[in-house]
Design a binder for these strands. Structure first.
Length: 529
RNA sequence: CGGGAUAUAGCGUAGUCCGGUCAUCGCGCCUGGUUUGGGACCAGGAGGUCGCAAGUUCGAAUCUUGCUAUCCCGACCA
């Protein structure tokens, strides 16, 4: 699980395009002032739920299991999209769009896929409503509008896409096809949580077609690397890259690779998956190509995706009891400026200085917001922006004007912590901020790595395994005999699952902690979201 | 989908057992004034068919039934 420390420079992440979003409109400030956030140590789940709402990221909607992503939350998602999209294009992919609806007959074609998704599909059976004759002002489904064939709201798009690829592919010259789509999907969930599990969610799904298994496997692996790089460099969330066991594999895949992140409550979160589909979908949809030897062959496929669940990972990885902590690379507002004044004249003098600072910061590609709300005290604003996770806060008042200084606070340190707040000379503020943004990005990543290190344990016996899970949680490395039976037994008895067989874990001789059978490698266990 | 709980103004709530000046209080919101270096204060004001729909009753936030949504615990899952 080696994670070589990557040295970041400002240039590594500043370029995700973004103007500061307006926040503070359409919400009542009392959401912030009402009470403090529940503490992580006391009720982690409640802390998360409240934080997502109070940081203005998202809220529950009137529709069961579905969320409204609010402007501030969506701005973070847009920055994630912008960077991921760039990385997909750098690796040769293009975007396209396929339909929301999947005819039921398509979904049936790949057997494993069909069975995997059957239980969580929304089904469209009619195409029309009519006025209810028995009840004025109400609508009813028009029984005459029943569809010949039901349409499934896509839980994922393999079926539609492979049905299309069939028409696009004749020769090896048509390959590879390297596509991605940004879309929404629906999986009917029983229990939902904002971002982590919602009935409808936003994601990207890559779907590629290749002439050989080797090339498809290479693609699968490449996209896993893209996800890992994105998570670590931009989200500042360290991840373990690995392979899913047969039991946890995507429905319809030959092999599923994943990145797994550790949350602050010691539970694992699958942050992205990349699947080698083999020829499963090609066979199901009869997608063949003529190879160089003039032979018909089934096409090899991959698919890979990350979703708005990344937002949940981002929140749970870094935030504290005062609110959200955002990595500068994904923060919609990287710097907020709070004026402190008594008179209009003072405000005017402060504003003049601030305008200048804003121009210089924007010239460096840093998104900055000047908080001019005149109905709130500076103290309130401090707490407000802390809740929203803005990485750097500047405060400027009369004393600063006299001394040509400005107060600089960093969100990655707790209130009152050494270095959380410093006064700097106004002439040096731009350079200080640039450096600070880089430091924060690196610091929260390092903190997350340290946390993971402290919460990754090795179990040499089943008793020890249970003991670790019961008392400490976190990641547990242990030998496993490779059977689904053992995996299920462990899940049944401890609620921990095999998150993955880590790619970077060296082989080591040992015996399965449950059955005592020989094992060549330790695998990663955890209780998971 | 199984077990449990909840639903009263934008948010948090009192009242529900024992139907009848009960629609309470705090925050927020609006207006004015004083404030402003860590979640300001005073005064005045606006805002609610008590989740929705039926029913019982002279009368329902309160009792009955159904529905919907949310939360917690399970099973399922990115």
């Amino acid at each position: 699980m080696a994670n070589p420390k990557k040295s970041l420079t400002f240039a590594d992440f500043w370029y995700i395009p973004c103007l500061p979003v307006w926040v503070g409109k359409g919400i009542n400030t009392n959401t912030m002032s009402q009470q403090k956030l529940p503490k992580r140590s006391e009720n982690y789940a409640e802390w998360y739920n409240e934080l997502v709402k109070r940081a203005d990221l998202a809220e529950n909607s009137a529709v069961r299991g579905c969320m409204v992503i609010k402007p501030y939350g969506y701005a973070i998602w847009e920055k994630m999209q912008a960077q991921l999209d760039r990385m997909f294009k750098e690796t040769g992919h293009a975007n396209a769009y396929f339909p929301l609806f999947v005819p039921k007959s398509f979904l049936e074609k790949e057997e494993g896929h069909a069975e995997g998704f059957a239980k969580e599909c929304a089904v469209v059976t009619h195409y029309r409503l009519k006025v209810n004759p028995d009840k004025k002002g109400s609508l009813m489904v028009d029984p005459d509008s029943k569809l010949e064939e039901e349409l499934i709201v896509r839980p994922t798009s393999e079926a539609v896409i492979w049905n299309t690829y069939k028409n696009w592919i004749q020769s090896y010259r048509d390959l590879p096809i390297l596509l991605n789509q940004w879309a929404n999907v629906v999986r009917w969930e029983m229990r939902t949580r904002l971002f982590l599990r919602t009935t409808e969610f936003l994601w990207q799904e890559g779907h590629t077609a290749h002439a050989s298994a080797e090339e498809a496997l290479k693609e699968t692996r490449q996209m896993l690397e893209v996800y890992a790089e994105f998570a670590e460099k931009y989200m500042a969330v360290p991840v373990v890259k690995g392979i899913k066991t047969a039991n946890e594999r995507f429905a319809g895949a030959e092999e599923t690779m994943c990145i797994e992140a550790l949350m602050q409550d010691g539970k694992a979160l699958q942050a992205g998956t990349s699947h080698f589909l083999g020829q499963n979908f090609a066979k199901a949809f009869d997608v063949k190509f003529l190879n160089k030897n003039n032979e018909q062959e089934y096409v090899f496929g991959t698919s890979w995706g990350v979703s708005t669940r990344l937002m949940g990972a981002l929140v749970m990885a870094h935030s504290d009891d005062n609110g959200l902590v955002l990595p500068p690379s994904l923060a919609p507002i990287q710097v907020v400026i709070v004026p402190i004044y008594k008179t209009e004249e003072q405000l005017a003098a402060i504003t003049e200085k601030v305008e200048n600072i804003q121009l210089m910061l924007r010239a460096k590609g840093i998104s900055v917001k000047f908080d001019t709300r005149d109905n709130l005290t500076p103290g309130f604003k401090f707490a407000d922006w802390e809740m929203r996770g803005v990485p750097v806060r500047l405060a400027i008042g009369q004393k600063d004007l006299e001394n040509n200084t400005i107060e600089v606070s960093r969100r990655d340190k707790e209130r009152g912590e050494e270095g959380a707040k410093v006064s700097v000379n106004l002439d040096a503020v731009i350079g200080t901020i640039q450096q600070l943004l880089t430091d924060i990005q690196e610091n929260i990543y390092q903190k997350a790595i340290d946390f993971r290190k402290k919460n990754t344990h090795t179990a040499h016996s089943y008793a020890e395994f249970k003991e670790i899970l019961a008392t400490k949680g976190g990641f547990v490395m242990a030998h496993w005999d490779g059977t689904t039976e053992t995996e299920l037994k462990i899940k049944e008895e401890t609620k921990a699952t095999i998150r993955c067989i880590p790619l970077n874990e060296p082989e080591s001789e040992g015996v399965c902690i449950v059955t005592g059978k020989p094992s060549k490698k330790q695998v990663l266990f955890a209780q998971a979201y």
